[in-house]
């Protein structure tokens, strides 16, 4: 098992390397530099600025300089937010994004797999059809439609139920107060709940048809025990493989959600940086995102090994 985990970790390193390289050269291949849009600078000033950011050196040298700094956890200064380094900016944004993302992911996994198992156990009955119908809605209605709609309903129009005012704040972080989290997390989680429940239903239906489930039934085990001990562990495997893509999807969604709800996460820095050609910032955020996704893929791989004895030994 340790050997398996070690192999996976070693395998993740080249991936990260590829990402850094790809992102770095893509940024540099772009027409126009970060300082083009500002008013014309005297040549010597421009030269000084370029030297300060290592932009006067050959591209390959710049790349290795960047790699060297990266190895020390230094992502360089932000080109546009001149008083901050990229690391500082990410350090302020990441906790917000992480809290959002992880909350959404946890809710999606728990609720989605619960709904999926329910639907599978009631296959082709009304419970199944309604869960799958709603899931289809969740997949097809994009985040940037649900976000304004929910804002409209819960924020602007306001909802009162049994005399309680259910209105929610429609923007701002407010130090991460629960009320401010509800709408963004819901919007982020909805499509994932839908995908997870569909995945889970499919896997569970498949597993419930397996011969070993018949064996378990022939042993006189209760339906509950069959699901919990014999079926669930195999049915959860496709879900484990989906962890990485799920995080990637949630991070993508957070770009929208942070923008709509005005949350100070790294998604906003990314969009800002991209629009301003703030290369170091964009590069830093992409590396940060990629690391998160790779870490989760790694975790998923290891979890897969724990759950499936065949994979562990291979």
């Amino acid at each position: 098992m340790t050997g398996y985990a070690l192999r996976r970790i070693l395998g993740a390193i080249p991936t990260l390397f590829v990402i850094v390289t790809l992102a770095f050269f893509m940024m540099r291949a772009a027409p126009g530099g970060p300082f083009d849009s500002e008013r014309r600078l005297p040549p010597e000033v421009e030269r000084n600025i370029k030297a300060a950011y290592d932009l006067d050196k050959p591209l390959v040298q710049q790349y290795f300089l960047y790699l060297g700094k990266l190895a020390h956890g230094d992502l360089g200064p932000s080109y546009k937010n001149k008083d901050f380094t990229v690391v500082q900016l990410i350090a302020t944004g990441l906790p917000v994004s992480m809290r959002l993302g992880l909350s959404a992911m946890t809710i999606a996994l728990l609720l989605g797999s619960f709904l999926g198992v329910m639907a599978a156990l009631r296959q082709n009955q009304w419970q199944d059809y309604s869960v799958m119908g709603v899931a289809m809605l969740g997949i097809t209605i994009p985040t940037f439609v649900t976000a304004p709609l929910l804002t409209l309903v819960f924020g602007i129009y306001g909802v009162t139920l049994f005399g309680h005012d259910l209105s929610l704040p429609v923007g701002g972080w407010n130090g991460g107060a629960l009320a401010n989290m509800i709408l963004p997390v819901t919007v982020l989680a909805l499509p994932q709940i839908a995908i997870v429940s569909r995945l889970m239903r499919g896997a569970m239906v498949e597993v419930l048809r397996a011969n070993y489930i018949r064996t378990a039934r022939a042993k006189g085990l209760s339906a509950r025990r069959i699901v919990m001990r014999h079926a669930l562990r195999a049915a959860v495997l496709p879900l484990v493989s989906y962890l990485g893509p799920a995080l990637a999807a949630i991070l993508t969604g957070s770009l929208i959600v942070e923008q709509i709800f005005g949350l100070p996460g790294i998604g906003r820095y990314f969009i800002q940086g991209a629009l301003n050609r703030d290369y170091t910032l964009v590069l830093g955020v992409v590396i940060c995102y990629a690391t998160l996704v790779i870490l989760l893929n790694l975790l998923a791989d290891i979890l897969y090994g724990v759950l499936d004895p065949k994979v562990r030994q291979a």
Partner: peptide, 19 residues
């Protein structure tokens, strides 16, 4: 089932829970 009456199936690989 599993107590007074038990069963043995054809394909022993798929009939045992793999995990």
């Amino acid at each position: 089932r599993g107590s007074a009456v038990t069963m043995i199936f054809q394909d022993p690989l798929t009939s045992l829970t793999p995990h």
